[in-house]
Design a protein around this nucleic acid. Structure first.
Lengths: 150, 150
DNA sequence: CCGATATCCTTGAGTTTATCAAGTATCGAG
DNA sequence: CTCGATACTTGATAAACTCAAGGATATCGG
């Protein structure tokens, strides 16, 4: 293991991490998410799907199903509606004709960005951090995210 | 104000917060939430409801509906099932006989804590950070947590 | 090559999760 | 007291999912 965890470090990290998840899950998150949906006029499940996609990256539907923890058939209907709205595009994989990869269209990319603009409005708690700290926090989380996407 | 927000400061806060939401909403969050539900054997909506409650605090059902952004009647059925499981208790408000306040029972408090224990496990991606960075992240999140609890 | 087997997506049926409309009980203002 | 508003509940719908089955394509062992 590259960075061994002491028991104490693990526990306090869990506490801190938990505090943020709780903040996001039980309070602010729900509200923000709904208004983000309204702002780009899509349903909540559709936004979840959009958020799981990255501009320029075309993933198989199966991957989306795994990420969203839902049945593959549900992804089919989600993509159906998103495609009807022109936010997303089905492509047949060149290497495997069974799989269809899904890519954000131009409009989809814009829509996702708009939704994020709503979601990213920082909560007032953020004022407790100085600017340097905010930047630090962003960079650390980015690193986590990067590690996740590998 | 301790840390006045310039346009730049607002941006850095948005970036930082955006990193949090993106990480939790589109990746790790979904998965964690589902396993937390399994760990205490409740449905996802039931867990959302549990998370919105605080031990020792009895809120009107209406408040829960507002927090969850859902119809009041849906809260009725959620509370029905939670009450049937003994996790929650209906009380008639002493000041207004129309309102029923909902309080976590002993079992409910335990269940919520157990669910949080699952949610609070720091993601394995944490290993991508050095020990120093982990500590830094923890402290930043702590500060955020503290600001929230004031 | 060929069949057996597995995976990917889709379709249709069924269940769970939620919203809407209406009803009862209570409150508060006039 | 009467009226209008609010809190919760109930029952009927709609939305958001899961499950079972099927057609198309890939992969593997013979």
């Amino acid at each position: 293991m590259r960075h061994p965890r002491s028991a104490a470090a693990t526990k306090s990290a869990a506490d801190a991490w938990g505090a943020v998840t709780e903040l996001l899950m039980s309070g602010i998150g729900q509200a923000r998410f709904h208004s983000a949906c309204q702002s780009i006029d899509v349903t909540p499940p559709a936004l979840k799907a959009l958020l799981s996609m990255v501009p320029g990256v075309a993933n198989p539907m199966r991957t989306i199903a795994v990420n969203l923890r839902c049945d593959a058939s549900w992804v089919t209907s989600l993509v159906d509606t998103l495609e009807a709205r022109g936010l997303v595009e089905r492509r047949v994989s060149p290497t495997d004709r069974r799989v269809k990869t899904i890519a954000l269209t131009e409009a989809g990319t814009v829509a996702k960005a708009a939704a994020l603009a709503t979601l990213n409005v920082p909560p007032p708690e953020m004022d407790a951090l100085t600017r340097e700290e905010q930047t630090q926090l962003r960079d650390l989380l980015r690193k986590l995210q990067h590690a996740h996407n590998i």
